[in-house]
Amino acid sequence: MLRDITLGQYYPANSVLHKLDPRVKLAGTMVFIVSLFAFRSAEAYIGATLFLAAVIRISKVPLKFMLKGLKSIIFLMMLTVVFNLFLTRGTVVFRLGFLAVTEEGIETAVFMAIRLVYLIIGSSVMTLTTTPNDLTDGLEKAMRPLGKVRVPVHEIAMMMSIALRFIPILLEETDKIMKAQMARGADFESGGLIQKAKNMIPLLVPLFISAFRRANDLAMAMEARGYHGGEGRTKMKPLVYRGRDKIAYLLLLLYLVLMFLVNRIGFFAGLI
């Protein structure tokens, strides 16, 4: 049951994409998202599709896992599609009562749907190929310049990695507590909303107590090992760009330029 929820849903595999520096992957995701929203033509979307397909292929992660993330946005997607479909002005194709479906509306709806789907798949590629720890490491290093303007970059990164680390622990704990209470005849499924909320008490009290205890223990353990914030702290595995990371950056740049050209002067002309 709870095991099915994936948040930091890392998929272990041995691919180039897994080995890339997390900063490259962060930049790549950004570039991809920017390209989705900046360029708006059928040719550009073909280009984005090819790029995404290639990346998925390289990642060695089964497509099934990529698509899993889509489940959560189905509702949002339907909403955008419906709104765009009916509320865009332009050449009317047909009418449904007082609502008019326009050519422009259909076009926007389709593009929006594609954008959203690609957005989710694109970021799934990153989270599926990067461990949560690598991700926060990458974020910390990439955001380091912000430290100059007194943004507590290290603290934010530390909090993020602790939070990420605790998600599976607390999920597992929730599972165990639920089972322990179900063994005492607790019922988490039936009843109305208020009854259901009430039924959660036997789950939430032990969970909160355990979360506080864990937080306390962790703070103690960190202090015992001399943790005193980010100042002067070194890393066991510092992030260093390697050859493949530089190549990846080059490819990203190339992708961006190509997309720009394709969008400007059409697909085939862009390739030549």
Partner: peptide, 10 residues
Amino acid sequence: VFQYPEHQLF
């Protein structure tokens, strides 16, 4: 009865 009593006492 599960291993950790903390999981059921509330």
